[in-house]
Design a protein around this nucleic acid. Structure first.
Lengths: 344, 344
DNA sequence: GTGAAAGCGCTAACAT
DNA sequence: ATGTTAGCGCTTTCAC
């Protein structure tokens, strides 16, 4: 007799099935995992499992196998369409590979990001894609000592031995500024996010470089740093109006939507009086009126690549040297940057 | 000697710590869990743990304890701000209670929803909040036999023994229609979501009831069913224009944004020529121009309540009889439903 | 206060 | 082809 461990009333386990089917737990496990067995053994086990409504305990399976078949994606803000696009792309890739995706919204809190990094050690997921909004020394240290494979979406300092995928927001910002210049704008204001974040810093660099390119001078009165968000965009633009810009370039679409609102509220026409351009080319770019010109920084592409990298790393933990790829930006022109009114 | 299981090079375990600290694994476990121990034992264990960079294996802990301290929230669409609001609310509550939140986007695919329900049996999470967009017999069956506590955000048929939190979209839709009527509109078009979903059906009912209330007749030419989404809203509104509406009421803010775009594109003024109202009062309501009047269906409130119910159920599995609460709707008036132009 | 030992549910040798 | 058994890393009696 295969002694009945305990036929508890709880969830059915392979023991309950073994008992009911009159076989050993090993046979149950084999059948359930599709390993060879005699016809009628298979049959009896499967019937017992079905009758009992058996669902394998993933926790036990993980403990044994050392893998959870779960992956984690940690992003700064689940409300931002950019990250939603990444989630979708990552989800598609990881799901196809048989992994479940855990989502984590860090609210751009450094402590939270570090906690996520450390939590790789609790073996709750097999790997991590993280998108930090700034990268501190503590991040670098945590990345070095991570307990499992990590892919960073963002710009890593040289020498950190971790796969990464970055956006080229310097080039992206330049694309937008040059486009505004080409369509006749000369006083191009800039509503940027926090200057001490990586995206903020890069966009600033791109803005300055493009101004230079176009033979325009950098005017501090035309530049505002603020949070990423619709309200912030509206307020910032309102302040900027004193400097009489003929275009407002915003560091993301949410800011641009806010800018558009502020302009409308003042009775200014877009693009006749002031052109508006955003970044990210998220769904929001088409939400307002007029539709926004925006720079696609490749969120979907970055998500997809990050997921691919992570899966590769899962296959061959130490093999390849860390790779770092950059998704190219793409300008998407819409009505918000049409020609200026010819009067004035 | 407490025989060294295996001092593998892998992650540190309580064995590595025990070895290093010269105590038994039991003592390590106790110290790590804050159970009493002698001063110097505590000290040595803690030092060893720190030096080794020990992180408890959550999987092993779960297997032993039968709980994962993880909760799952399954929503139809992670790109919809309504669900984002729910996520935030749920997150806040569960985090405070010491639970991690797993997010799952089902894309409103019934099979996926059922899979999530069944996956409660794999013991990966201790409980589930699910927000199905329609509720089939299969859902009801799956809910009855769920392997753990479930809370549904949505309208359940009577007699299903599961906690639920619902929105009152019938009353919500009526609120909007009555407001449009009071502000002088008489040809109130309705862009609804799919009619075979619970929200779609309820909104339709509210629309009809309110028309009745206001002494208006239901005109099929003024009603369109479509998907939830900006594009769909624009297309539907474009078609609707043939019936010369003086207001467009939309089943959510995304549709309303699309409606606004279609109207702008035709050169119609909002609200002078046509008023627009949405539902959900999501962040999107303030994204476009003019800002949208919208009906807040209490996503945040529903999320919070659902989380509370789940936590309660976790404490007392069988105790209370299933509760079902309804979050009251609230009309938020903005510029998109201002007065009509007085000419014409 | 501390150690030995028994599992949690499962998989994978290893026997038979 | 099938059964027995040893763990995966941890918590928790139960003795001492």
């Amino acid at each position: 007799m295969h002694g009945g461990k305990r036929m508890g009333a709880g969830q059915p386990t392979i023991f309950s099935i073994a008992e009911r089917a009159g076989v050993s737990i090993a046979s149950v496990s084999r059948v359930l995992n599709g390993v060879g067995a005699r016809r009628d053994t298979v049959e009896r086990v499967e019937r017992a499992a079905a009758e009992l409504g058996y669902v394998p305990n993933a926790v036990a399976r993980s403990l044994k196998g050392g893998r959870t078949r779960q992956l984690t994606f940690a992003m700064p803000d689940i409300g931002n369409p950019v990250y939603v696009a990444m989630v979708r792309a990552i989800q598609a890739v990881t799901k196809a590979a048989g992994y479940r995706l855990l989502l984590h919204s860090t609210d751009a809190v450094v402590e939270d990001e570090l906690a996520v990094l450390r939590s790789l050690g609790d073996r709750t997921s097999d790997g991590l894609i993280i998108c930090p909004i700034r990268i501190t020394d503590a991040h670098v240290e945590a990345l070095r000592t991570a307990a499992g494979p990590v892919v960073v979406i963002g710009s890593l300092p040289d020498g950190v031995p971790v796969d990464s995928v970055r956006a080229d927001s310097v080039a992206g910002a330049a694309l937008a500024v040059r486009h505004l210049h080409e369509t006749g704008r000369r006083r191009i204001a800039f509503v940027n996010g926090p200057s001490d974040t990586v995206p903020g810093g890069n966009r600033d660099a791109g803005y300055r470089a493009a101004l230079d390119d176009c033979g325009l001078v950098y005017d501090p009165d035309l530049v505002v740093h603020t949070d990423f968000g619709i309200e912030s965009g509206a307020e910032a633009t309102d302040r900027l109006l004193a400097a009489r810009p003929d275009a407002v370039f915003c560091a993301n679409d949410q800011l641009a939507l806010g800018a558009a609102r502020a302009l409308h509220a003042r009775g200014l026409r877009i693009p006749e009086d002031v052109a508006v351009a955003g970044m990210d080319d998220s769904v929001l770019a088409q939400a307002g009126w007029p539709p926004l010109t925006s720079v696609d920084l490749g969120s979907t592409e970055r998500g997809r690549r990050a997921a691919d990298l992570l899966l590769r790393r899962l296959d061959t933990p130490e093999a390849a040297t860390p790779s770092s790829t950059t998704a190219p930006p793409r300008l998407v022109v819409r009505a918000s940057t049409g020609p200026a009114a010819t009067d004035s």
